[in-house]
Simulated assay, not measured.
Amino acid sequence: MNEVYINRIAKFLPNAPVANEEMEQYLGKINDKESKARRIVLRNNGIQTRYYALTKEGIPTHTNAQLTAEAIRGLFDEKFQPKDAELLSCGTSSPDFLMPSHAVMVHGELGNRNMEVNSASGNCCAGMNALKFGYMSVKCGNTKNAICAGSERMSSWMLADHFNKEVENLKELEEQPIIAFNKDFLRWMLSDGAAAVLLEDKPQGELSLRIEWMEGYSYAYELETCMYAGADKLEDGTIKPFSDYPSEEWLTKSIFAVKQDTKLLDKYILAKGVDSMKKAMDKHQVTPEDIDYILPHVSSHYFVDGLYDGFAKAGIEITRDKWFLNLKDVGNVGAGSVYLMLEQLMSSGKLKKGQRIMLCVPESARFTYAYAYLTVC
Rank of each mutant, 00 (worst) to 15 (best):
L351D: 05
A220V: 03
E3M: 11
M281H: 07
E166H: 02
E212P: 01
V333K: 06
W188M: 11
V104G: 04
Y219P: 06
L131M: 10
V330I: 10
G91Y: 10
Q48I: 12
E78A: 15
K29R: 12
I47G: 03
Q260S: 15
M189Y: 13
I147C: 01
F242S: 15
I6M: 00
Y369Q: 12
I318A: 00
E317M: 05
V330R: 09
H62Q: 08
C90S: 01
V298W: 11
Y217R: 03
A16P: 09
L351E: 08
N169G: 10
K267L: 12
R187K: 14
D232P: 00
N64V: 07
M341R: 02
P246G: 09
H297S: 07
E70K: 10
E212Y: 05
E86R: 14
A126W: 03
P100L: 00
G108H: 13
A195N: 05
A120L: 00
Y26G: 00
G111M: 06
L199G: 02
A160F: 00
G28L: 02
A312V: 04
S94A: 01
N31F: 05
K165P: 14
Y371E: 11
K272D: 15
E206Y: 02
P362I: 12
D275C: 13
I211Q: 00
E70G: 00
K313P: 03
T68E: 12
T92P: 03
P177C: 02
T319K: 11
G334S: 14
W250V: 07
E222F: 05
A229K: 07
P296V: 05
C90L: 02
N326Q: 09
L27G: 01
G127P: 04
K353Y: 15
L186W: 11
V41S: 04
K267H: 13
K171E: 14
S151R: 13
S218K: 12
Y339P: 03
L42M: 08
A312L: 06
L173G: 04
S94I: 02
M128Y: 05
D236I: 02
A271C: 12
C377I: 15
L374P: 03
S35W: 08
S348C: 06
A149D: 10
R356V: 14
A65I: 06
G91R: 08
L13R: 04
L67R: 03
I294D: 09
W250R: 02
K33F: 01
N129M: 07
L42Y: 12
C90M: 03
L88W: 02
K183D: 04
I294K: 04
T252G: 00
Q285W: 13
E224T: 07
A126H: 04
C377Y: 15
G141W: 00
D236P: 07
V274Q: 05
I30E: 06
A370M: 14
E24C: 00
A53L: 11
I179S: 09
T68Q: 09
A370Y: 15
C125H: 01
P17I: 05
T287A: 10
S364P: 15
